[in-house]
Design a protein around this nucleic acid. Structure first.
Length: 526
RNA sequence: GCCCCCUUCGUCUAGUGGCCCAGGACGCCGGGUUCUCAGCCCGGAAACAGGGGUUCGACUCCCCUAGGGGGUACCA
């Protein structure tokens, strides 16, 4: 049997991180078994601009490298892959169920059924529809219609026995048929509902394994009933635990951002990304730019492999120690048997740690290629790229070392390397602390002369020059180096001092020091 | 209300009756190193939800309770 799995996104305009985890498990399972991964679009007839709302989702999949074998843009033998274009099939299935006596026309009103439901609740017994308005003959239909009633189609569920099936994650499961309701499968306007559609599609697409979130577990008996009634082979089922909210066990949702931001780790992750977006002058909205949405990570400069590695461990593990997996290793090792049963909450810190590890492993050339566009978006480097930028950026990235956690971090670290001397911005707090203190100006002025007399501008030599200066002046190294950093970078923190001096170059360094000396007179209260 | 699922350090997890006074990872705390930051090195705290069984022996099996989550739509 060929393994075929599917993921069924609805065109909402964004790709949700929890959805990606579910999709990832489907994708890995298909790839692991040499099968196919299908993307089926859960749209409805009413939805407008489906293409527009779908595009960011498909883009997200592409960015992560999760390719699909059939679906939008990839035609396959079972097209169309849009549910809105498959209504006739669902209607035919509904008709067949009626013809076989496994579904029926129901002429009840909403209020009538709701009344029965409330009565059952009041008596603390399970609700079971009385089938009072069920019409199984033409005469009954005519009679109800004469009353002016309209109909829906309901499943005629069994009222005894058990529905038993094996879930690949949870094992043997058993549900009482009598507790299942006569669910509506076709609305009064003739359109069909999700459960019917889903079962019909899974069968027609020859899906072998339905791997989906836990919320569908209680729906499974009714889907099995539909499938069996239609004479379909029933797929294997695997119900995955949720990706839960940060620090909780509740299902992660798209619209509760406010609440998640109260979680310190989530907040930090978000603020870090927002900072980068600001430096790129990106206009963001909470709806489209936050850590619950995959696009956030792409914009900010995370690596897809890091995201995937983090996500695969949300509910799955190989053993007691392996944490790092390349995509190939994930594919080679993934199994449903090792999926956990309990929900896993989203942990921004851990995701960030994976990102850190992955980006540090990246060769300099690739880092440079990934980071350059960020400097351009921030307006620090022209487009097309001037030819001296590449080597310089390489030096900067090397100097920054593991301070750069995501590609977008380069902006904050590299701005003073690319900005004109006279446009350099000073961090005011740092300026006060490091340059407005006694002796700072004098030391800086003296060291300027030492630098002016230096021709060998290599960082090794600069290191030597500074140490000689410190010794001669009989001061501690900290007394000059912090002032110097402020003077030539404008910031209190950054890469190694000698790297900075070397990269900025003699001419600019002297100019910046002069500028700074002038500013000390202007800005420091005496 | 009814039905279903779940429950090991703060978080992700390992553990399928003795290898576990519970292992790894992220984070956290303390100390050291460095020109700042980021690191790096050393050390540390931190969990089997509770109660009954079964067994020579239970994190592992059974039952109950509690807690958490989900479903119960002419939503998906």
């Amino acid at each position: 049997m060929t393994v075929r799995t599917r993921f069924a996104p609805s065109p909402t305009g964004y790709l949700h991180i929890g959805g990606v985890r579910t999709a990832l498990f489907n994708w890995l399972y298909a790839r692991r078994h040499g099968g196919q991964f299908v993307l089926r679009i859960d749209d409805t007839d009413q939805q407008r601009n489906v293409d527009e709302a779908l595009e960011p989702i498909l883009h997200g999949f592409k960015w992560l490298g999760m390719d699909w074998d059939e679906g939008p843009d990839v035609d396959g033998p079972y097209a169309p892959y849009y549910q809105s274009q498959r209504q006739e099939r669902y209607q035919a299935a509904a008709q067949k169920l009626i013809d076989d006596g496994l579904a029926y026309y129901d002429y009840s009103t909403n209020e009538e059924v709701q009344g029965e439901r409330e009565a059952a609740q009041a008596e603390k017994r399970p609700f079971q529809y009385s089938r009072k308005w069920m019409a199984e003959t033409e005469e009954q239909r005519k009679a109800f219609e004469a009353e002016g009633r309209s109909f829906v189609v309901r499943l005629k569920m069994p009222r005894e026995g058990k529905c038993e099936f094996t879930d690949l994650v949870r094992g043997e499961l058993s549900f009482d048929w009598a507790l299942e309701n006569d669910h509506v499968i076709q609305r009064s306007d003739g359109s069909c509902l999700y459960h019917l559609a889903s079962v019909v599609d899974d069968y027609e697409f020859k899906i072998s394994h339905v791997i989906r979130a836990e919320e569908h577990l209680p729906n499974t008996p009714r889907q099995i009933f539909i499938g069996q009634s239609l004479g379909f082979t029933i797929p294997e089922y695997a119900h995955l635990p949720y990706v839960a909210e940060p620090g909780s066990k509740r299902k992660l949702s798209k619209r509760k951002l406010e609440k998640y931001l109260k979680n310190p780790d989530f907040k930090k992750l978000n603020e870090h990304g927002q900072g980068i977006a600001e430096r790129m002058n990106l206009t963001t909205t909470a709806d489209s730019f936050n850590p619950v949405i995959v696009d956030f990570y792409e914009q900010v400069g995370y690596l897809p492999e890091a995201i995937l590695n983090y996500l695969v461990l949300l509910g799955w593990s190989l053993d007691d120690k392996t944490e790092d997996f390349t995509v190939e290793e994930m594919i080679a090792n993934f199994s449903l048997e090792r999926v956990t049963k309990a929900p896993a909450s989203f942990d921004g810190k851990k995701l960030f740690a994976f990102q850190d590890r992955y980006i540090q492993k990246l060769p300099l050339k690739q880092k440079t290629a990934k980071m350059l566009p960020y400097l351009q978006k921030a307006g620090l480097v022209a487009e097309p790229t001037p030819c001296d930028v590449g080597p310089k950026l390489g030096q900067i990235i090397e100097a920054c070392g593991d301070r750069l956690k995501v590609a977008g971090d380069i902006i904050a670290y590299a701005d003073y390397f690319f900005v004109a001397d006279e446009d350099m911005q000073y961090d005011e707090k740092g300026f006060q602390k490091r340059l407005c203190k006694a002796g700072a100006k004098e030391n800086l002025a003296k060291f300027r002369e030492a630098l002016a007399a230096t021709d060998d501008w290599s960082k090794e030599n600069l290191d030597k020059v500074l140490h000689q200066f410190v010794e001669a002046a009989e001061i501690k190294i900290g007394e000059i180096i912090h002032a110097l950093r402020m003077a030539i970078t404008g910031k209190p923190v950054g890469p190694g001092m000698f790297d900075c001096l070397a990269i900025i170059g003699k001419e600019s360094c002297l100019k910046r020091i002069d500028q700074t000396l002038a500013k000390i007179d202007a800005s420091c209260a005496s």
